[in-house]
Amino acid sequence: MIEKYSDHAANERTFLAWVRTGIAIIAFGFVVEKFNLFVRTIAEANASDGASRLRLERFSGSFSHYDGFALILIGMAIIVLSFVRFVRTSRMIDDQQTHSAGGIKVEFALAMVLGLVVLSMTAYFAL
């Protein structure tokens, strides 16, 4: 029987939840990138209508490109940091010493960065 099995199982479930979140954010980053490519294609196809082409080109700027790339990088960072935290927590569960839950909250920092990216995309499309 594995000692402290329920603690290790909870640690693994948390790790897998973070991995799923990271994969979803990476997928959303690819969607933003592909949407940018789609809008550029539509803008080039409607080259004869100047007004609609200008509106479409506004949405296919470099800002949208960087947002998609930022989402992909954030998703990758979430997966890497969740693995580091998983290994660290596994060692702490097996350790006989008592550990505090203190330290820098990496999840909070990543959530803030992700929130800023989403907020910037919202402001970009609303203007």
Rank of each mutant, 00 (worst) to 15 (best):
G50M: 10
G50T: 14
F83R: 07
M112Y: 10
A47G: 13
L73Q: 00
F108P: 02
R13M: 13
V80N: 03
S82Y: 01
R58P: 00
T122I: 09
R40V: 04
L56K: 08
N46P: 03
I2G: 08
M92W: 01
V31H: 02
R85T: 08
D49Q: 06
Y5Q: 13
N36D: 07
L71R: 00
F86W: 03
F28G: 04
F86S: 04
R53D: 04
F108C: 09
S6R: 15
A51M: 11
S6V: 15
I2D: 06
F63I: 07
A17K: 10
A9E: 14
W18R: 12
V84Y: 06
A126H: 12
I104G: 11
L73K: 03
R55Y: 06
H8W: 09
L127T: 12
R58K: 15
N46Y: 09
M112H: 11
F86V: 00
L81E: 05
L54A: 15
L16R: 13
V84M: 11
A77H: 03
I25F: 01
I25E: 04
I23K: 12
V117Q: 04
A77F: 03
L110T: 06
A24H: 05
F108M: 10
S6Y: 13
I23S: 05
E12Q: 08
F63T: 07
V19M: 06
S48G: 04
A45N: 14
F38V: 06
M92I: 12
T14V: 04
K34M: 10
T41C: 10
T41Y: 11
V39L: 01
T21Y: 02
E33Y: 08
D95C: 03
F35Q: 06
I2A: 11
S100P: 09
I23P: 00
F38S: 11
T122A: 11
D7N: 11
T122Y: 09
I26S: 04
A45P: 00
R58T: 06
Q97V: 12
S100L: 07
L71S: 02
R55M: 01
S48K: 11
V19H: 03
H8A: 08
E107Q: 10
T41M: 12
A123E: 04
F83K: 03
R40T: 08
L56N: 08
H65D: 11
L110Y: 09
S82F: 01
R13Y: 15
L73G: 02
S120N: 13
R40F: 13
G22K: 00
T98Y: 12
H99K: 12
M92E: 12
R91V: 10
I42K: 02
S6A: 15
W18N: 05
D7Y: 15
D67G: 05
A17E: 07
N46G: 06
R40E: 13
G75Q: 00
F30G: 09
A109V: 15
A109W: 09
I42C: 07
A47K: 13
R91H: 08
I26K: 03
L54F: 02
A27Q: 08
S48Q: 11
A9T: 07
L116V: 15
